[in-house]
Design a protein around this nucleic acid. Structure first.
Lengths: 189, 189
DNA sequence: TAATTATACCTAATCATATTAGTTTTGTCA
DNA sequence: TGACAAAACTAATATGATTAGGTATAATTA
């Protein structure tokens, strides 16, 4: 049988796409193998096990999101930049529900690489915040606050947990403004 | 073999406890059966499948949390009540990591019962908010905002995702104050 | 109280998937 | 061209969910 040019990246991308289609908890070695027309055991030449693949999807997602956020923050500064990042986050997380699940679910502190993956993303907010005469300590608190809200909100949107037929984007706008209000109140403190 | 007095509630409680100990994704029919000294297949007399049990843990968790929050809000009103609920939420979610995972993970809109489960909890905040001269629409936005933050924050704490050695409870306090600040700014609007 | 019935348990079997072991093939490189 | 590593393959093992079918227990009823 001729060989495919299978690389780790190719596989992760396929897994990520599959996660968006059927959910991260539904992807399997079996399905991935079928996708590439090879047998399940052959997969183990590229990965240790299924968890490693899911972990890969998690890292891939944070990487992608970081890029999007970076791009969104170009040309804007201060509070506008924070806002732009929030919207980029929302956009990515809700257009990639399966990947986003992986990003939340498989991101444990135990793994240094996983930790770094999100660090990069949220350091962007940290740096912006720190440039606004907000103390280092408060900047760190604020990053955590933004992160908590963003992850929670997108998770809820993806799971369609907001029952009432009221605009989700209005809620988002109002919330982001509130969080930014909190930032502002910490200037020079 | 003599029969146990196994009821659905007993099983869910055991599953919930097990979820806290080993994680919701690790509970299995096998382990639960062992816990009750019966064989796996016997379990199917009580439940359709494993998913139904996990779903039960989710409902159980929201129910418990609702009670805790209710208790926490007794004797306080307005913003203090909201604050009390937030702290009760944090306390429950972080002392019951496995159950909380189930609460986030298995709560899809698809299921009316699941939807109701959280509705009860967050209606508490809604009612308080509505009593403060905040419009219905904004009240709904605010509930979503609080919910998003609370769920996101507790998830991150449980997953030990906050790397920096800085007080988590300080972050929580600051964040809750920020959210409440957002509420205040919506009075009479 | 004895007969009946439904329920809860059991054993045996099936199925699906992950993963390991051991073999063969393919492609690269000296 | 021959040797080696990588990447496939087939065969086998393991685990766990679930189904099928049978039996005992407890509750209900005649």
């Amino acid at each position: 049988m001729p060989r495919l040019g299978l690389t780790a990246d190719t596989i992760i991308e396929a897994a990520a796409q599959m996660a968006n289609e059927i959910g991260i908890d539904k992807i399997s070695i079996k399905l991935l193998a079928e996708k590439f027309n090879i047998k399940s055991p052959s997969f183990y030449n590229h990965f240790t096990n299924l968890d490693e693949i899911k972990n890969g999807v998690m890292l891939y997602g944070w990487k992608q999101l970081e890029e999007k956020a970076l791009r969104a923050a170009v040309g804007v500064s201060g509070y506008d930049a924070v806002k732009a990042i929030c919207y980029a986050f929302y956009d990515y997380a809700t257009s990639n529900a399966g990947i986003f699940d992986a990003m939340l679910w498989y991101n444990n502190f135990q793994d240094e690489k996983a930790h770094k993956a999100t660090q990069n993303m949220f350091d962007m907010i940290y740096k912006i915040t720190a440039s606004l005469n907000i103390s280092e300590q408060n900047s760190r608190h604020l990053v955590r606050m933004f992160r908590s809200f963003l992850e929670g909100f997108c998770l809820l949107v993806n799971k369609k947990s907001f029952g009432h037929p009221q605009s989700v984007s209005d809620t988002f706008a109002l919330s982001v403004d509130t969080l930014i209000g909190g930032m502002k109140s910490l200037e020079n403190k």
